[in-house]
Design a protein around this nucleic acid. Structure first.
Lengths: 201, 201
DNA sequence: TAGGTCATTGACTTTTAGTCATAAATATGT
DNA sequence: ACATATTTATGACTAAAAGTCAATGACCTA
């Protein structure tokens, strides 16, 4: 990597860091592009070199932690599906908590609308999550852990729905309850239920 | 009601109708206040007599159908909690579908942030939904249908989480799947699971 | 070292949310 | 019936912020 590429990478990183801090602090609607660039120590125009629109930075802000846990999930060996998922849910909500409520609000807003997201492969993040989870389920089917007739697509949708439901619910309540305690109790009730009838014993 | 009040009501109604049509068609970010007022046949300033901010109209657009089903739920007599809720979920998703995906997107966005909502009692809509659902559960406990040690608050949060999760998931997928079919299958799996351990047999 | 490339800049344009003085219509009191 | 108060409606205006772009200079390559 030459000096230029390195400097470009640094600039983008400065913008993401500044963006995350401000997002946590004030929420997306309360900050403007100039706030971010000032905090990052660059000019306003620079922002638009790295992000097509103001909203696009949110994706980059949240991508790192969420990608990490997706990777973790895929690497978990020797665990059953009903062991893997509560762990994933827990880690997901850890990310949610560490990104802060305002970041999650904006993230959910972006995720709600596939058209409202840049056309890069990163923009398809939730589809990636979907495919990743679907893969985990298909894997469980092929290992014989789940029955052959398991409706994989449906269950994946349900799991995605549970994840975003938890996050939305936490945001709605303005972060009033402990997300991790709650998630764990939630999982205890839900995960087994989802898979109960499809597990081969 | 005198002539003035009647005309004011009509004007507000015209704005809500125009707003709903445009919201369904294009989505919240793609329309501006002048689009709405033009379609309603009034001046731009008129909008701000009835709504403090652009976002506030979404609440009024969705309030009518959702209030109706909340009322229905409270009136259902002689049904158990595990019969009432699937019906409510189904009706909820019917509303979601009839309001259109773009309206739901914006509605979810508003609901995500309690601070981003007018200070009227209507603004507390989701809290109202929460209290209403909680009441239904408490009722089931007092009738002896659910055990005395049922964690009512937790279950209410889970139900709210399921509702918004379903809606979010549907919006994310850009309305690709049939929300009603899906909801019914979803309910079949989830509702019994949620209550299973708390039901007195 | 020359000529091309690319990251950076910040003044500028454009868009749109939200305001407010003014006017018109309606209600109320005498 | 008239005068005065109140409410609804208007649209030109202001303010704020998103997004653009021609100019600049640092860096790369041959």
């Amino acid at each position: 990597m030459n000096k230029r590429q390195k400097s470009a990478q640094e600039t983008k990183h400065k913008l993401i860091t500044a963006g995350l801090e401000l997002l946590k602090e004030k929420g997306f609607d309360a900050i403007n592009v100039e706030d971010i660039t000032k905090k990052a120590g660059v000019a306003k125009g620079t922002f638009y070199i790295y992000f097509k629109r103001k909203e696009d930075i949110v994706l980059d802000i949240s991508r790192v932690p969420f990608d990490k846990i997706a990777e973790e999930l895929q690497k978990m060996e020797g665990l059953t599906i009903t062991e893997k998922l509560p762990h994933y849910f827990h880690r997901f909500m850890e990310c949610v908590e560490s990104c802060g409520i305002n970041t999650c609000r904006q993230w959910t807003r972006d995720v709600l609308d596939p058209n409202n997201v840049p056309e890069t492969k990163d923009g398809q993040k939730w589809k990636y999550d979907f495919e990743m989870l679907k893969g985990i389920l298909e894997d469980a089917v092929s290992k014989g852990e789940l029955k052959k007739d398991t409706p994989v697509e449906l269950l994946t949708h349900i799991i995605i729905s549970e994840l975003y439901g938890m996050m939305t619910c936490w945001c709605m309540s303005d972060g009033k309850f402990e997300p991790l305690d709650w998630t764990d109790r939630f999982c205890k009730i839900q995960i087994d239920a989802i898979f109960k009838q499809y597990i081969r014993r």
